[in-house]
Amino acid sequence: EPLLEMRDTAEQRTYFDTYLAPLFEHKLVRSLTSMKASLFGLGIPPAQYDSLASAGGGDMSVVLKQRLEKLVCDFPIAENYFAQQAFGRRYPSGDGGPLPLYLQSHNFADLRNRADRVTVVNRSVTQRLADEPEGSMDAYVLLDAQDWMTDQQLNELWAEITRTAKPGSKVIFRTADEPSLLPGRVSPEILARWTYHEARSREMTARDRSAIYGGFHLYELNA
């Protein structure tokens, strides 16, 4: 893949404008991306498809073009292991290129020594938190799971998060669409106990090298 050999983002921009951007003008591409089943292979279920498409006014091809542009143009390919996977379907061999921390060989000993600290639980986060005492947690990582939750599920989840959180606890998550999905869906009484760090969230969204998500969000429980 030519992209993997490019030396800087200027070359990457030229490649995107010349070869990739025009693809999204083809009727076939626009037709295929309008079908929800076309994105199942990317792990995007129907509920998340709708959220993702809303970022482009309902036109999925617009969103995919924007996200691909970010992946190709905003970060040096040589330093972005998400792009290495997307375009090369592999990570660089050895430690000679960008790798997630857990695949870097100098971290293997730490991983081995601390593996017994990990507990695998096959339950929803809401169910798991229900077993924990009040004020016992300080960090929550929700990934993008909320994108396909109902309003009831969101409220049940955030009720448990709020109950188990210590003052100053932080919650991070991603969304397919750009704005946070909580306002208007989670109870105002619950959200009033949290501060949304909007500027920090925008900063982290811009730094998200995976590029497929519209937003990264940070909430902190008020003291």
Rank of each mutant, 00 (worst) to 15 (best):
T126Q: 12
L129R: 10
L182K: 13
L157Q: 10
M149C: 08
D144Q: 08
S136A: 15
A159C: 07
L218Y: 09
M204A: 13
P133K: 13
G214A: 01
R174S: 06
F173M: 06
H197Y: 06
A165H: 10
G215Y: 00
E203C: 01
S169F: 10
D177C: 08
A159F: 07
M137H: 12
E178Q: 11
R200V: 11
D177G: 09
D147F: 02
G184R: 08
T205W: 06
P179R: 03
Y140P: 02
A211D: 00
N155A: 08
L157R: 13
R200N: 06
L154D: 02
T205F: 11
R202V: 06
I161N: 06
M204R: 15
I190V: 15
K166V: 01
Q152C: 01
M149K: 04
Q152P: 01
D131G: 08
Q127W: 06
V186T: 12
L143C: 12
K170R: 15
A139I: 07
P167M: 09
V186E: 12
E160M: 12
W158D: 00
L218E: 05
L142M: 13
Q153L: 03
A192S: 12
E132D: 11
K170L: 14
I212E: 00
D151M: 01
M137D: 05
Q153H: 01
P167L: 01
T164L: 00
A165G: 08
L182D: 03
V141Q: 13
T205Q: 05
P179K: 03
S136N: 09
I161V: 11
R128F: 13
I190C: 11
V125F: 11
R202T: 06
W158M: 03
R209N: 06
L129K: 10
P183Q: 03
G168H: 12
T164N: 03
D144P: 04
F173P: 01
E134K: 15
T175G: 03
I190T: 15
T205N: 06
V125H: 06
D138K: 15
K170A: 15
L181Y: 01
E198K: 09
V171W: 05
V141I: 13
E156S: 14
E160P: 11
P188V: 11
Y219S: 04
S210K: 14
G135T: 09
K170I: 14
Y219C: 05
A211L: 03
S187A: 02
L157V: 00
P179M: 06
D208Y: 07
D131W: 10
Q153N: 07
D177L: 04
L129T: 08
E203V: 04
E189M: 07
D147K: 02
R193W: 00
T195Y: 06
F216L: 09
A192C: 03
R202C: 00
T164H: 05
E160K: 14
L143I: 09
D208S: 03
R163P: 04
I161S: 08
P133Q: 14
Q127F: 06
R185H: 07
S169P: 10
S201W: 01
L182M: 07
